[in-house]
């Protein structure tokens, strides 16, 4: 059932105000939407990165629920240990709670790159947990370095636009597709701009026992170079250009697109609003925009076909 704003407004805020994320950061928006969708006790965990360092500065914590940070690349493995401990202690009658929500967070660096193996392992082992990647498309905590989630052409501090190079030279990794290939019960792609869809996806995920993965686009004003009050709009434009389609996959075989834009906007509507793509406006870089647009179109068409095949 689609959640209503009225109901969500009554939910407790498990991520308290006063954390030190940047103004306009997409990550806390994502986390609050997710935690609004949860019922009952929850253990959260997070990989090293912006979200973790800005919410847990000792002796303060913004987390009103149980929370564990271990390291950068092991949020999934850590939560798999917590979930296993729960099963062991439950079996021995040492824990009363019949259902506990286990949610591990990680940025794109902590998920697409250094934590990829850890997530793959945890998902394959079938732990009853949700892994959420908040994808801001670069290593933001260390100052906007390129990750495998960074889009083609974006300028980052390790792959900057210069006299002979024009930012990232590779396409981004299809992380959501990689997770779908694990044929786990539930995989979804969501965006902070489409909150109703996001909350519904988390509710659905948590109603399923087993491993779940959700990839959430989470714009970063200093990294993408847009204004802090444009965050939700940037996420929305990524959806409307089909750069970031909203879809879900069940057991690797039921592919469902949750939102199909009536008029798909050109990719330039999204990239022209962000400083990280500014250099692409030079006439000699036109082909990069064309390549990016062609890839977005191709990916969207493949997605439509997948939905069709598995209908």
């Amino acid at each position: 059932m689609a959640p209503s704003l009225k109901d969500l407004a009554k939910k407790p805020e498990l991520l308290s105000p006063g954390h030190r994320m940047c103004a306009g950061c997409g990550a806390p928006i994502a986390i609050r939407q997710i935690l609004h969708a949860i019922d009952g006790p929850v253990v959260t965990g997070c990989a090293t990165g912006c979200l973790e360092v800005a919410t847990t500065i000792y002796p303060y914590t913004a987390w009103r629920c149980s929370f564990i940070h271990n390291a950068f690349e092991n949020s999934a493995a850590t939560m798999s240990g917590v979930e296993t401990a729960y099963r062991a202690l439950k079996k021995k009658g040492k824990i009363k709670e019949d259902k506990v929500n286990f949610i591990a967070f990680g940025g794109d660096g902590g998920s697409y790159d250094i934590g990829f193996q850890s997530i793959s392992g945890a998902m394959e082992r079938g732990h009853d947990m949700l892994y959420v990647c908040y994808d801001n498309e670069a290593y933001m905590n260390t100052g906007v370095q390129r990750s495998s989630a960074t889009p083609l052409g974006a300028s980052t501090t390790t792959a900057p636009a210069g006299k002979v190079k024009q930012g990232k030279e590779e396409f981004r990794k299809d992380m959501t597709g990689c997770m779908a290939a694990h044929k786990i019960p539930y995989v979804a792609q969501a965006s902070i701009s489409n909150w109703r869809d996001l909350v519904a996806k988390v509710e659905k995920a948590m109603s399923i026992k087993g491993p779940k993965f959700i990839n959430i686009l989470s714009p970063c004003p200093p990294g993408w170079r847009h204004l802090p009050d444009e965050t939700v709009e940037m996420a929305k434009l990524a959806v409307e250009t089909c750069f970031w389609p909203l879809y879900e996959v069940e057991y690797g075989k039921v592919w469902r697109i949750n939102y199909k834009p009536k008029n798909i906007l050109p990719i330039t509507d999204w990239i022209n609003r962000q400083g990280r793509f500014r250099h692409l406006n030079k006439p000699q870089n036109k082909h990069i925009i064309e390549t990016l647009q062609a890839r977005v179109k191709e990916d969207w068409e493949i997605l439509l076909k997948k939905e069709e095949i598995f209908k």
């Binding site: 798999s80 240990g81 401990a85």
Partner: peptide, 20 residues
């Protein structure tokens, strides 16, 4: 927990021990 590496073995141990 039949993990996919020793790094994950120790990571899972940290989660498990922190869970009591």
């Amino acid at each position: 927990v039949l993990v996919e590496s020793e790094h994950s073995a120790m990571s899972a141990c940290v989660g498990s021990a922190a869970a009591g």
